[in-house]
Design a protein around this nucleic acid. Structure first.
Lengths: 220, 220
DNA sequence: CCGGTTTTTTACCATTTGGTAAAGTCACGA
DNA sequence: TCGTGACTTTACCAAATGGTAAAAAACCGG
């Protein structure tokens, strides 16, 4: 279905890319991340992206076949990076610490990569029209695997009894909120610097209380 | 600032509206909620909205001056409804129960009014370009008032010590997640009916643990 | 420095889209 | 039933936008 291999002479086709190609493709994707994350797919214009990438629209279309191609490439390229912390979740001696590490990673990503968070959020908000297949194919299996892992922890008593699926949902919701709703947070809490430390402390406390098994709860 | 009183002969100006005006304005706003919440402001087209409202584009523009006017009217009309549960938060004998009631209200709203949730989410995601003034003017004072209330509860010991501001953020994040990220939730948890009960149970448990004062924690 | 290849620019184009003008059509009270 | 104002339709328009063609320029191995 992907027209990737059809035109073997087009820049987007084969692996070997010249220095200038790599540089310009990177500039375009960087600019596209800016614009798509702020305006959504339909709200973004090629002129905007090209302008921010420092080149003309036709020149940009020399590197990518279409607006949609840029968007798809961007989402695919970011997907693995975005899911890496969840991928890294694995069996360990202390499941609480393991999950808390995941929570911290996600908070850090929210602070460092807010545009990526908003890009995904916008895509999901609109019903994931261009990402639903990818979600079913890549995210769902990963999600199921990690839920099974968490369920095992709960059943072994090393983790408080929790609903694994909804635990992940709430972790995503809370951590990504600070990136996705940044505009609102900024209005309500003007002092950003201090707010971040407080946010992390609050979020860690929230999940700490949820995850710590009831017996001997004084280990913190 | 609002151009409401400028053209006194236009339908959008004065209060007294005929039966047919009220009916058509309502149909337009209902259709606009559908389309704006799914595609965002720039992604929505007047033809789409008009089509879903069962009338022609020029006819629709007889009732609203512009696309932006529809969007603004929609947001303003929904704002109070959306914030009503927070507005209702007040001093009570049992602060934990009071906040848990708020959490339940928000979960219920996420289920019953997902389009409204997504409309606001999309607006905030894009930096709240058309809502920032409203947020500063209406939401900020309300938010500050309720945070003070919660802080008072915490200081009096009837509520566990919590960061009031971030408590509200996390309540919003978690509850609205089920509406805003519905597409993702659907992919990951196909059985919707059961999922909702589990979601409510999980969310209530999460905040219950956070809010209950440490001493005599067995009251649940 | 030369010839072919890659990259960039200039000049376009068709469609979509928000919005308008003006000619109807309808409702309803005198 | 007739006229007046409220409502609706038809026919448009200008700007924006995704995308293309082809000429021009830059690059690069030999």
């Amino acid at each position: 279905m992907a027209d990737d291999g059809a035109l073997s002479s087009r820049p987007g086709a084969a692996k070997p890319r010249s220095r200038i190609q790599r540089r310009n493709r990177k500039k375009i994707l960087e600019a596209a991340l800016d614009v798509f994350s702020q305006h959504g797919f339909r709200g973004a214009t090629l002129d905007q992206i090209a302008g921010r990438a420092g080149m003309s629209k036709p020149n940009m279309l020399y590197y990518f076949d279409s607006k949609e191609a840029i968007h798809v490439e961007l989402l695919n390229a970011l997907m693995s990076e975005w899911l890496a912390p969840l991928e890294a979740l694995q069996d360990a001696e202390d499941p609480v610490a393991e999950i808390m590490g995941y929570v911290r990673s996600k908070m850090e990503m929210s602070r460092v990569m807010p545009r990526e968070s908003r890009l995904f959020a916008g895509e999901i908000l609109q019903g994931a029209p261009r990402m639903a297949p990818h979600l079913k194919a890549a995210l769902k299996p990963l999600f199921d695997r990690k839920c099974a892992l968490i369920r095992g922890w709960s059943e072994s008593g090393r983790l408080a009894p929790v609903d694994a699926e909804h635990l992940l949902f709430t972790i995503w919701a809370v951590t990504q909120h600070y990136a996705d709703f940044e505009a609102q947070v900024d209005v309500l809490m003007p002092e950003k610097e201090a707010a971040w430390r407080r946010a992390c402390a609050h979020v860690e406390g929230l999940f700490m209380r949820l995850l710590t098994p009831a017996r001997e709860a004084g280990e913190i």
